[in-house]
Design a protein around this nucleic acid. Structure first.
Lengths: 135, 135
DNA sequence: GCCAGAGTACTCGGATAATCCATGTCCGAGTGCGTACGG
DNA sequence: CCGTACGCACTCGGACATGGATTATCCGAGTACTCTGGC
């Protein structure tokens, strides 16, 4: 999540300076990691329609939307890293009343929590994050 | 988190039935996992003062608080699994303005999100979860 | 001078090896009960 | 009959293998620019 926001902030900053397609290596330099990590995340962001990849000489990545229309919720949904609190890894004992009844109960509790979280995430845009970063 | 709630629900149910100290093996049977996993989590819950461990013949675990005074926030804080959205694993490039300015900016954003989450977690008790489970 | 073509430099994308974390298994430490012995 | 001391059964707690997942390295595929040769 943090790296994804970093990537989008970098692309936003580059877009403001008219520096067209940015390579994954430049972003990796800023994040201080390997380019393949950036590419993996960029691939998911592209599948979600947030960025575009270009091939050729002036290859690289560009934003597919205006940064002001890009909320953290979009990033969160694009990553699809599963729920905040995962349920049981191995299904609990169905013989036990608690083992049988707890998962659906927790599903509701966790669902409500995620709803709240999504609404909060939708209130912040990448633009605002960048302004707070370099401001 | 889910397993921790499962454990506390089990202890609550046992407490209602006057079945004193419950062993980690019984809980593992309900959760369908290894007892050591239960013990690991119980250890953290004990360090946080939520449960007590008893040694000897009728050994096992009991609740240290009334279930109605036990909120999901207590569980969340006892586990200390780190923030919802972790920051950069390796510190980003301090030469880059974004790499230098993003972590503190995200700290604020994430902090606000966690505050909201904590308030929501404090609104639910283990008692209520158990009632929803077996009710 | 203008156009066509091959060559080149640069990137993305996927496949493969290495490293790290979580899970599962095992053994020692500690405690309370049950029993046997002595007074 | 009662008190004490020993042995035992049961558990927790930590240390050691194993499996999966994430990360890092490497190589092939594709595209736009550029340079060269011919008309």
């Amino acid at each position: 999540m943090t790296v994804a926001i970093h990537i989008l902030s970098y692309l936003t900053s580059a877009g403001r300076k008219r520096r067209d397609p940015v390579t994954s290596e430049q972003i990796a330099w800023s994040v201080n990691t390997n380019p393949v990590v950036i590419r993996r995340i960029l691939g998911r962001l592209r599948d979600a329609g947030l960025v575009r990849s270009h091939r050729g000489t002036s290859a690289g990545w560009t934003l597919a939307r205006r940064p002001s229309d890009l909320t953290l919720l979009d990033v969160y949904l694009a990553l699809e890293e599963g729920p905040i609190f995962g349920l049981h890894a191995s299904t609990p004992n169905q013989t036990c009343p608690i083992g049988r009844g707890l998962p659906p109960a927790l599903r509701k509790v966790y669902g409500a929590l995620e709803d709240k979280l999504r609404r909060e995430l939708a209130r912040t845009t990448v633009d605002e994050v960048l302004d707070k970063t370099i401001g």
